[in-house]
Simulated scan of single mutants.
Amino acid sequence: MTAQRKLIRRTALAATAGVAALVLAACGNGGNGHDMGSMESSSTPSATATSKAGDHNDADVTFAKDMIQHHRQAVDMAELADDRASSKEIKDLATKIKGAQDPEIKTMSGWLTSWGEEVPEDMSDMDGHDGHDMSSGMPGMMSSEDMEKLEKASGAEFDKMFAEMMIKHHEGAVEMAKTEKSKGKYGPATELADEVIKAQTAEIDQMNKILGKS
């Protein structure tokens, strides 16, 4: 994992989040009854105004902020598989994880911006800081030591370590998503939480099979 590659990804995500926020704001001012961040629609302008960015609660904000950091670490782990994994199945799974979670980071960043909330800064590649440990209170997050071990591994050792760590990571994400489903208010956020539960539960099953545990 090079700092340059991670800086490019973070810059791209930030730019996309800004564009998403502008689009959300434009839709909010248009009064056309459609929310770019949700599947909700309304037949009247007055109803539209109440179903926009303000229709969320603290649980939604916490979910978006925490899951952004959680997803960032999963993407970091997935990127390591490019030149370290020996199993095609692990490489394909890592590509799938990155392909799903990068767009979700952008979506959640757009929500936070439209709500007037700060998007968590990615500190994982800055000298003297480690974004993983800063977020270690979240379920399933790897420590900096765990990430260093994964980065140094290769071949079959990497494959096994990746699967074991990602299972734990996914289990944490599922737990966070279940909390959002029970406490959240923002429709698109609870829908995303449901998708996280379905997708990552299936991937946990797949990784357990890879490890010969099921």
Rank of each mutant, 00 (worst) to 15 (best):
E117Y: 07
D76P: 07
S109A: 15
D55G: 09
P120L: 07
K65D: 03
D60E: 04
D55N: 15
H71L: 06
H34F: 15
N32V: 10
R84E: 00
D127P: 15
S41W: 13
A53V: 14
G33M: 06
T95M: 09
G37Q: 07
D82V: 03
Q69A: 09
V119H: 00
G31H: 03
S43T: 10
S46H: 10
R84H: 06
A47D: 15
K88Y: 02
D92A: 03
S109Y: 00
D82G: 01
T62Q: 08
W115Y: 04
Q73Y: 01
K88S: 04
S41Q: 15
M67N: 02
K91Q: 12
D92E: 04
H56C: 11
S38H: 04
K96L: 13
K106P: 05
I90H: 15
G30T: 12
Q69M: 09
A74I: 07
L93N: 02
W111G: 10
S46D: 15
S114V: 05
D82E: 05
D127S: 13
K96P: 01
I90E: 13
D92T: 06
S114Y: 02
N32F: 11
K65P: 03
S46L: 14
N57A: 13
A81R: 02
S51I: 15
W111N: 05
G31E: 13
G99T: 06
Q101P: 07
P103L: 00
A85S: 05
K106T: 13
G33R: 04
T62M: 07
E40K: 12
A94F: 05
D60A: 04
M126T: 04
